[in-house]
Nucleic acid binder design. Structure first.
Lengths: 230, 230
DNA sequence: TTGTTTTCTTGAAGTAGTTCAAGTTTTTTG
DNA sequence: CAAAAAACTTGAACTACTTCAAGAAAACAA
């Protein structure tokens, strides 16, 4: 039901220029209001922004207009190695992995992303250089995306968003440091149990072999840990 | 010689209220001008900021006034585990390591910092929570430091610095991702040679055992790699 | 529902690293 | 400059993981 409405009312970049969407008469906008308040998952990004900085309703609408909804099928790539990353994605629904192909041709997961997370290769996005990374949908995925140009425009129009993005990246960076900490201080088994305790629901969502590579051991070893055979 | 002058003219936070320093008469300020233009390493931070955003001379002086020069002896700690990190440091001269004590009581380096780098535990600094990390001077160290409160004030006074700090952190985050990439795809020996090729001058500056832990292998193994005995 | 693909399991053999302990070299300090 | 401290080296024994190969189970598509 939710999903049906979501698709039906799906708002694209063009909404920015759609007079109905921005019409001030509340009756005429009823459908959209309902959509925005009760159903629209796009609302999540506004809530997320408002956790870090203030943003009133009018601003929120304009901010939203800079984003495009983009959906991906399971296994579809959002970014491929050697391509330049020209979008930043905010995950509305679903799950992605950020991975590389190592020298033996095995895919190694560096990061996962779930609802309300930003995902992109910041270096490639910022400096428009080819990426070393792949980003792939693990589940059917709904995102809000913004390209490099719109992103610049958005930040120029709302400089206070600089603060929002600074804080978002700061958090990601912090998480990345803590991750290295865990890789360095825990044994394979400890890393698995730690992950298991911290994110019990999450580990249900991704194939074991991806989790194994994220925790930096082989899928076979994961199997043995789970079976208590180590 | 340089060092002597540096010490002699060392500018502290109090400079903000020092009428001589900000006096507009160029003759009276000659010493300081000379200092600022030819000797003052504080200038480096301004140059660094100007690489990312525009900043005129008047602004630069005010920005500088928010910082304090702080020096550390070799081995001195800038931040200790379990303390809350309440400063952000910009390194003028010297070298630091960002490390943890692992479960076996061995110190494991997660990051190095050299001239023109920012170093702090961003999570602890931002959310004022106890840090998991230590930051230590590896060489005699000169920094510019800014505390949490001054940092907030600075950003409020110059909102465009939000962009600067966003870009700085973005770069650090990118570097951290690339680092994990290397850890995952290269063997110990490859990681060493890669580091050797990329930063030949840097590896001269730090003890081998710190480098070994940064590259995630034992000091003994480093020794064997270097001797070609592996 | 059935066939196909993807994911997970298991044990045996192998290896890239660690750990330990003792000695040597280099750097720092008074 | 000598003494002390810190950093580096070496080889032998060990181990936490990997790799391989083959089969079982689960998920997916037609």
């Amino acid at each position: 039901m939710k999903k049906f409405l979501w698709k039906k009312f799906s708002i694209t970049n063009d909404s920015r220029n759609n007079p109905i969407f921005f019409h001030k008469n509340p009756v005429e906008r009823l459908g959209f209001l309902f959509y925005i308040i009760y159903i629209c998952p796009m609302d999540e990004i506004i809530k997320h922004i408002q956790k870090f900085i203030s943003l009133n309703n009018d601003e929120a609408e304009i901010v939203l207009s800079y984003f495009k909804t983009e959906t991906f099928k399971k296994k579809q790539l959002l970014l491929q190695e050697n391509q330049t990353c020209n979008k930043q994605y905010f995950i509305i629904k679903g799950c992605v992995r950020f991975y590389i192909n190592n020298t033996k041709g095995i895919e190694q997961t560096l990061q996962f992303g779930i609802e309300n997370w930003w995902i992109t290769d910041y270096l490639s996005f910022q400096y428009q250089t080819p990426s070393h990374f792949n980003i792939q949908a693990i589940e059917k995925l709904e995102t809000l995306s913004i390209d490099r140009t719109s992103f610049e425009e958005l930040l120029e129009r709302f400089p206070k968003l600089e603060k929002y993005f600074r804080l978002v990246i700061q958090k990601s960076f912090g998480a990345s440091q803590v991750r290295i900490h865990y890789l360095f201080t825990m044994s394979a088994e400890e890393r698995f149990h730690h992950m298991n305790n911290m994110f019990p629901e999450f580990i249900q969502r991704v194939p074991q072999y991806m989790l194994a590579s994220y925790l930096d051991f082989s899928p076979e070893f994961m199997s043995k840990i789970r079976a208590g055979k180590v």
